[in-house]
Write a protein that binds this DNA or RNA. Structure first.
Lengths: 243, 243
DNA sequence: GGGAGAATTGAGAGTCATCTCAATATTGAG
DNA sequence: CTCAATATTGAGATGACTCTCAATTCTCCC
């Protein structure tokens, strides 16, 4: 039996409070993906199907919600990255990290869309400390250490983060050519720009893109907040092992 | 022949109108650079030092202003590009176009900031048709035609436009390393990623960056709307009479 | 200068947003 | 089942924003 009770009760002892907060977070992610900077508290509470007043039990104000969303979303991406940081060959590590981010964006387009929009929601004065900046710096640094003779200069950061954000945008908006070939070619272009031999760049990127889905699935099963996984309606959260 | 009707040229009291509209446009550029999507009509009219009501003599509504700003700002960048489109060697043309855009962004940081913010002000559904998309496509296309064996695929567009937008953001926010070296290295990285020989990439990019200031100055003197030039307070223009 | 028409003003109507709070409903341990 | 703690509700208070319009000021042609 175990018909889910009409009153949704996940488990005894779990305060309702926990669940409502997460529902608000998921609703906020959807709303920001759709509305961007212009999102309103009412947008969020309507999606979460709670009253306007309830919102203020969980967040001090609208700003606090935005901050919480930034933490959540950037968290899922950085966790995904940290997941495979122990790769040995720096070039392969870079390729794998990038391929994983693409995979993550394709699996959770709302999260990617929110990340991209948040990246632009800051004022010019604070662009330097934008939430995504550390992620880009880490990536560029990790891409280069120990393998290429090039230092992770500002130009390299621009090359890597700019290209990846642009490709993420394409993937998140589900354009027709956001295919595995597209991802692989993006990575190969980056590797070549960073100084890798063209042939090796092509091989490495193909390998990384091919390996990404399995790594990513394992990561999601293990580490991703199940409530956030709801934010990807197109992805069955507990599908069969195979695809 | 010609206009038979009432006095062929409308000249009664129509002088001021032109000027006010341009002042509103300049104020809007400043305001959007500072406030982004959240800009209000009052922000703009306060900056332009006109009353709220005056605004509606010139723009049907707030949306119309945004559209007009997009036209103006994207216009100045595409004009800059078209300026040097006749270069012979595609790689050098690409390097020069890029260097010119960097120069333009450094000379008119407000325009660059507005362009970058507008790029993110659209909804995800319309990102594909965002105002900056054609500019990026043109650039990627122009970069490759006739020289590289690579076709201007989606990956190439992502590489070129993403990197340039990121570098423009750095230049617009006046970060300490937005120097000539930075610009030159960005271009070299791109050229190498596109398939050019590393040494030639370095040489070409240095040449292009060195040549950019003169070309740009000539372009501004010749073609740029003088009112828009006001948007760059650091520019020593405005030689007097406000006709 | 005189005056017709262009240009501007700013108060105000209407809308919609954020956030509060007293009242009400729900939850779950004993 | 009971009831105190916990969570939710939704109608306002408040303020900011967009857009209108009758009244006023300004321009500049003659």
């Amino acid at each position: 039996m175990s018909t889910p009770a009409p009153t949704p009760t996940p488990r005894r002892g779990t305060r309702k409070k926990e669940r409502t907060r997460r529902e608000l977070l998921v609703a906020a992610i959807d709303a920001i993906a759709a509305e961007g900077e212009a999102v309103t508290v009412l947008d969020v509470t309507r999606r979460a199907e709670v009253s306007n007043g309830t919102f203020y039990n969980y967040f001090a104000d609208r700003e606090a919600l935005i901050d919480a969303v930034i933490d959540e979303v950037v968290g899922t991406f950085t966790t995904t990255m940290a997941e495979i940081v122990e790769h040995e060959d720096p070039a392969l590590r870079f390729a794998t990290i990038t391929a994983l981010l693409f995979e993550h964006a394709a699996a959770f387009p709302q999260l990617a869309t929110v990340m991209l929009r948040l990246d632009a929601m800051r004022r010019p004065e604070t662009w330097g400390e934008a939430p995504l900046r550390p992620l880009g710096d880490d990536l560029a640094q990790g891409a280069l250490t120990g393998r290429f003779d090039r230092e992770p200069s500002a130009a390299v950061v621009d090359l890597v983060t700019g290209t990846m954000l642009r490709a993420l945008r394409r993937i998140a908006s589900d354009e027709h050519d956001a295919t595995a070939e597209h991802r692989s070619e993006v990575i190969a272009l980056l590797l070549r720009g960073l100084g890798l031999d063209p042939d090796e760049a092509e091989t490495l990127s193909a390998v990384a893109v091919a390996a990404a889905p399995d790594i990513h699935r394992a990561h999601v099963d293990r580490a991703l907040d199940p409530v956030l996984a709801q934010a990807a309606p197109s992805t069955p959260s507990a599908p069969g092992a195979d695809r």
